[in-house]
Design a protein around this nucleic acid. Structure first.
Lengths: 148, 148
DNA sequence: TGAATGTCTACAATATCTATAGACATTATT
DNA sequence: AATAATGTCTATAGATATTGTAGACATTCA
């Protein structure tokens, strides 16, 4: 039930970009800066950000003073979408996956007890991650910093 | 966020054993039978059942007419325990794991937004799996069979 | 023009997962 | 006692996924 490093790094990078996006600004960050701040191997981060870009989460500016910035507002980017992009389905087993369903081969999938429970688990995970945006994450972090 | 084959096979075997445990009986099943019924590679299942035995989930009888049976009542065996035994921690990241905590290296773990969200995810998963027993799984399956 | 950046593809290194091999120990049955 | 049926245990092979790197290229700014 684990988030990969790719997924974790991607999320951290996106959260950082969202953090530095105050009000409709265009807060561009360079790969190197993100890598340094978050302690991520540069070349690995490169491929992650590129994937995120090619899937519409980021935009970029090339050349000197280039960098990456969010393609949408931090309010609109949900954690579930980022994780699905980098790590694949949220579901613990394919036979309850929305994005990558596959039959699991049990004699009666409809009444398979394991499948029913794993469906609940999938929903529990998705309910959180589908409703948590990058902005939510940073608000929550800020709130802890204020209230302890 | 995926359940491994080992985890899945182990759960299926345990659920099957629970299914055939009606009332305080000693319903012994052999590796071969379980493997055939659930379509699991025999030698792989061997190692899984052995692990489950060595961790107190199963008991066994050796020799001719031997086999495996549950060490406790199906009501008492929770899915979370089986998964932790075969697949490791439920938590998506180590820094929110109960059974295998590790610091993730962010500057302030206490206020790390990602950690807070992943903590919620961990709890959502654990709340389901800690409260679902083998007996629950089979009851649920039965109910679907009755009501459609 | 040159330096700073992102783009892209391939690949290397490592880890993990899945599965199998095979020698051994125990028990029931005859 | 002999035999066959079973579980026990450890090692390891094979496949796949993850993590990370290399390097040539394209674009932009100054």
């Amino acid at each position: 039930m684990r988030l990969s490093k790719r997924g974790e790094y991607g999320l951290r990078a996106m959260i950082l970009l969202a953090k530095t996006t105050p009000e409709g600004a265009l807060p561009i960050l360079q790969i190197n800066d993100i890598a340094n701040l978050e302690n991520i191997p540069v070349k690995f981060l490169e491929t992650i950000l590129l994937t995120l870009k090619n899937n519409g989460f980021l935009q970029s500016k090339r050349g000197a003073n280039g960098g990456y910035y969010l393609a949408k507002s931090p309010e609109e980017i949900m954690l579930s979408a980022i994780i699905r992009c980098l790590d694949g389905p949220l579901a613990p087993v394919r036979c309850v996956s929305q994005m990558a369903y596959e039959p699991c081969g049990c004699p009666d999938e409809h009444s398979c007890g394991l499948r029913l429970v794993m469906g609940d688990v999938r929903n529990a995970i998705a309910n959180i991650l589908d409703h948590t945006s990058l902005a939510d994450v940073n608000r929550r972090s800020q709130e802890i910093k204020r209230t302890g």
